[in-house]
Design a protein around this nucleic acid. Structure first.
Length: 653
RNA sequence: GCGCCUGUAGCUCAGCCGGAUAGAGCGGUGGAUUCCUAAUCCACAGGUCGGGGGUUCGAGUCCCUCCAGGCGCACCA
């Protein structure tokens, strides 16, 4: 809503600046820090003071005298050192807010263009930890924001089922523990927890005798070839772990459209196709001698962004003929844009929980599909924009992938290959110590070393804590039953706490994960948002019980006297009117914390108003309706933001 | 060595294109519950915005430099 008013104000100012002072100036329009100062303001008089050789306030006053008040505004004032401040006609603005959707489609102009978001991408060899949760929450919130803004969005989760990490667990089962494939199959859940321990155990086992690394190499080759007992074990492990990962993510409301498997990229020779292109265009060359003798490398020395590297060439194909990660990733990225000239085969995914829309995986179509093939397969790939949610440590590799597209002449697609980089999650000193790791400073998590907080453990802890809090409150109200409703509410609160914790952090900062901080239900937290909406809903429930109207129509709000809008009430309306531009800016800059912070902002304003402005017991009808209108606007706005954040909103707490 | 990121209250962090008195949460202190449930609210205390230069009418924000910390720069992913 507010985003539509800014150009109005800018236009009026530009016109009057031209008319009165004869200058061409593009005025900045911002929101003043306090509501009593106005709703939209421009510091243009300050900017122009030098050029016009006049005091800023004098310029501002002249502007106010001469300008034509734009539609929807009540007055213009000069404030502070010389700001020109515009004040909305509050009742009319609020009336529009009552009927307007807080977040609407704005990407409609490029509606057919699809955005592919890749996230989660956990190696299928161990349990997910809290670092993976940051990735998944960021990816999921981004996808929700893009969808909310009307972009066609496809979410992919890349499964590296043929890499060293899976190979190590295969070695762990087959060589270290002497299991058969059937033994692995028979292991009880939680299988991912078993692998978590085994994986770090294998790491230590290798250290005990470096000769054992030969087993890793042999297994890796078997996984890539896809044949034999080791490959069979690898497939089984990956399948079981992926099922666990999807179950963990389903707990917090994260889902996907497609699981892309590295094994399929190998099986279908995606890299062969990409390699042909790379050779044809001269993007790679064969090294006859030197450090990289026998390898195919991509030269980076000519590119400005790769200056100062120790080695200006990136190996794409090793001297033993195998392909590096970057090579495979270039092929995969080409496929995402529909530039590879090949496609996957697809099959419905049947090994795990499935939510709203059906989940698909890459792989041979299963002929024995028992459900009559009712599901129609979407058209995967061929994105116009590709956003890869990958931690900041991989920035260099992501740049090489983009350079690969550039080298092939796909400049546009290279520009639209976006690395959504975020910093990792480490453990706070206090939390590391509590978990038994030496805790003199922050500690980086490491799956390889078995250092970390497992995602499901954290969720269990959050659920247990919220259940405790609920029961405590219910007992205090003499309302002690603990049924399914309590379970559901405990889960909702846990999800809100976790998702908000991950979403509120700026992406460029390392999160020092502190267990007390993460499980806090007070202040800036997911439950704080939930509680604010519960209060709004309680007001409506009470109104219904009293037989009073639960909603006030926009037509009524438009006729309210201006005096009902105290600055604090009005401030919430204006804050709510910024949801659209906040979500747009968050999606455009990939700074999703903006959404979380705006949601807190709204909730804080509402909580404060709640105490100062009762509705049920207000006798003055105008005042009551204004307050109810604000409650309505608040509720819809926070609901819209919570939907994007994936924070569930319960009816009561 | 080169590159990227970070340094703001005791702790965790906001601070949009340079602009109005640098803001939250936690923790601390003191208050608010016959009221739409206190998972809330209000008040108070707490700041050399890492240091130093520069640009500007104006710098937490831009430029330079130094200091401190993190992360990258593989025929690992």
């Amino acid at each position: 809503m507010l985003q539509r008013k800014r150009p109005l104000v800018a236009g009026v100012l530009r016109r009057v600046l031209s008319d009165v002072f004869g200058i061409d100036h593009d005025p900045v329009v911002e929101v003043p820090p306090q509501r009593r100062l106005g709703d939209l303001a421009s510091p243009c008089a300050l900017h122009l003071a030098r050029e016009l050789r006049q005091a800023p306030r004098a310029i501002a006053e002249r502007l106010v005298e001469c300008l034509e008040l734009p539609e929807g505004f009540e007055r213009v004032t000069v404030e502070g050192p010389g700001y020109v401040n515009f004040h909305f006609a509050r009742s009319r603005f609020a009336a529009v807010m009552i009927d307007a959707a807080p977040v609407v489609e704005s990407g409609a102009s490029d509606a057919p263009a699809k955005v592919i978001v890749e996230h989660t991408n956990i190696n299928p060899n161990k349990a997910a930890h809290i670092g993976h949760l940051r990735n998944a929450v960021l990816g999921d919130v981004l996808a929700r924001a893009l969808r909310g803004l009307g972009h066609k969005t496809e979410v992919q989760n890349y499964i590296d089922d043929t890499g060293v990490q899976v190979a190590d667990v295969v070695v762990g089962f087959l060589d270290l523990r002497d299991c058969s494939v059937a033994d692995i199959e028979a292991l009880p859940e939680p299988f991912d927890y078993v692998c978590w321990d085994l994986y770090s155990e294998v790491g230590r086992w290798y250290e005990g005798d470096p000769q054992r690394l030969e087993l890793r190499r042999r297994t890796l080759h078997a996984l890539e070839a896809g044949e034999g007992r080791r490959a069979e074990a690898g497939r089984l492990i990956a399948r079981r772990i992926v099922a666990r990962h999807l179950a963990t993510m389903a707990r917090i409301g994260v889902d996907y459209d497609l699981l892309t498997h590295e094994s399929e990229i190998l099986r279908l020779d995606f890299f062969v196709a990409a390699f042909e292109q790379l050779k044809e265009t001269g993007a790679v060359r064969f090294e006859e001698s030197g450090k990289n003798a026998g390898c195919w490398v991509m030269p980076l020395a000519d590119s400005e962004e790769f200056q100062g590297l120790e080695d200006p060439d990136k190996v794409i194909v090793r001297s033993d003929g195998t392909v590096t990660y970057v090579g495979k990733d270039i092929a995969y990225q080409l496929w995402k844009f529909g530039l590879l000239g090949r496609d996957f085969e697809y099959a419905p995914f049947r090994d795990g929980p499935r939510r709203g829309s059906p989940l698909w995986k890459t792989g041979p179509a299963e002929p024995d599909a028992g459900d009559g093939g009712a599901e129609r397969r979407p058209d995967f790939g061929r994105g116009a924009r590709v956003i890869n949610v990958i931690d900041a440590r991989q920035a260099y590799l992501q740049r090489i992938v983009r350079a690969g597209l550039e080298a092939l002449g796909h400049d546009g697609e290279a520009r639209d290959s976006i690395h959504f980089a975020y910093e990792m999650v480490s453990l706070s000193a206090k939390t590391a110590e509590r978990l038994g790791f030496s805790g003199d400073s922050q500690l980086e998590m490491s799956g390889r070393k078995g250092i970390g907080v497992k995602a499901d453990d954290l969720l269990d802890q959050l659920e247990a804590k919220s259940r405790g809090e609920i029961l405590e409150r219910r007992a205090a109200d003499g309302d002690g039953e603990a049924g399914e409703e309590v379970d559901l509410l405990a889960r909702q609160i846990a999800v809100a706490a976790l998702r908000f914790f991950m979403a509120r952090a700026t992406t460029t900062r390392v999160i020092a994960f502190d267990i007390d901080d993460a499980t806090s239900f007070e202040g800036e937290s997911g439950p704080y948002l939930q509680y604010s909406i519960v209060r709004a809903r309680n007001i409506r429930r009470r109104l219904r019980e009293e037989g009073l109207a639960q909603e006030v129509p926009g037509s009524r709000v438009a006729t309210l006297p201006a005096g009902v809008w105290s600055d604090d009430l009005w401030d919430l309306v204006l804050c709510a009117s910024q949801c659209q531009e906040v979500v747009e800016r968050a999606a455009a800059t990939l700074e999703l914390s903006l959404i979380a912070r705006h949601a807190v902002d709204l909730a804080q304003k509402f909580h404060a108003i709640y105490h100062r402005h009762p509705i049920l017991h207000e006798q003055d009808a105008d005042l009551r309706d204004a307050r109810l209108a604000v409650t309505q606007v608040f509720e819809r706005s926070l609901e819209a933001l919570a939907e994007i954040l994936g924070v569930p909103l319960p009816e009561r707490m």
